[in-house]
Design a protein around this nucleic acid. Structure first.
Lengths: 142, 142
DNA sequence: ATACATCCTACAGCCACTAGAGGTTCAACC
DNA sequence: GGTTGAACCTCTAGTGGCTGTAGGATGTAT
């Protein structure tokens, strides 16, 4: 039986994050000691590891909820999980394209900066005038 | 003189976002009509365009605040702006590396999915067992 | 028995917006 | 001059995915 702190260490999660996952129903309410402290078993360890791994792969908590649900029903057909993963892959690919455009633009800004006064700063100039950009990075966000 | 809606259209910003920028002090408080509606001139248009462009390049509002401040002082040396841009470039590059690892892993998951029952689903299996991963995508986040 | 690390709840805060309620103003048209 | 109706106003709350803090209770080692 693991304390919440031990579970946190084993999974590389913060204690508060575990409680947060419980609060939003992603983790089940665990057993408690007489004094009211949470105690976890292997099932919870596996489930949290699954969640953390999926988060590392960029899945949203909503998608993870679906994946966990599928994982709980071994006889369901698998194409739903496949769909979720493909959707995630598509999003990652789109982000990659946008980020590459950003990199190009930032590299150019930095390369062309002559190091004088801000009045002549290439970085600020490019920011001031969008038409100086070679790539399309609209909607690029983070 | 532009209404807030016209300014929004010109810069591709939502009206609420403009008010939000004003609220956090990124845009100055504009003049008002007798009835209390905001009216903007070219200076605000330029400033908001700068902000939006920098946002598209992924700069945080904090970084943008610094850049605007530099832009307001044309005789300051330029290396601070350069530093901010380089920092941003570095972050973008790091995100790219992580996202590429994610893409590799997601592609493999999707490719290997046989389309049977969830019990045998490759996607779910990989999520369950981190050791199946070839790439390091820890801390990859979004 | 005591120390003290860890646990508990409850709530506020982060970023960068976005949405909605409920009411007011402006500009155009008749 | 009167009437629409789109656009404006303020204020508040919600989004995702946590993170941090206050103030107190519990568990374990000595």
């Amino acid at each position: 039986m693991l304390t919440i702190g031990a579970l946190a260490r084993k999974t590389g999660t913060k204690v508060q994050t575990i409680r947060y996952y419980e609060q939003i129903g992603l983790l089940p309410e665990p057993g408690r000691t007489e004094g009211g402290q949470r105690r976890y078993g292997d099932a919870e360890l596996d489930r949290l590891s699954f969640i953390r791994h999926a988060r590392q792969l960029g899945f949203s908590l909503g998608a993870i909820r679906e994946l966990l649900d599928l994982s709980d029903h071994p006889n369901k057909p698998c194409h739903e999980a496949d769909t979720i993963a493909r959707r995630q892959l598509k999003e990652v690919e789109q982000r990659l394209v946008r980020l590459e455009a950003l990199r190009t633009e930032l590299e150019r800004m930095v390369r062309e900066c002559s190091g004088g006064r801000t009045a002549d700063c290439r970085v600020l100039e490019v920011l001031r005038d969008h038409s100086e950009c070679l790539t399309d990075h609209t909607e690029a966000g983070a």
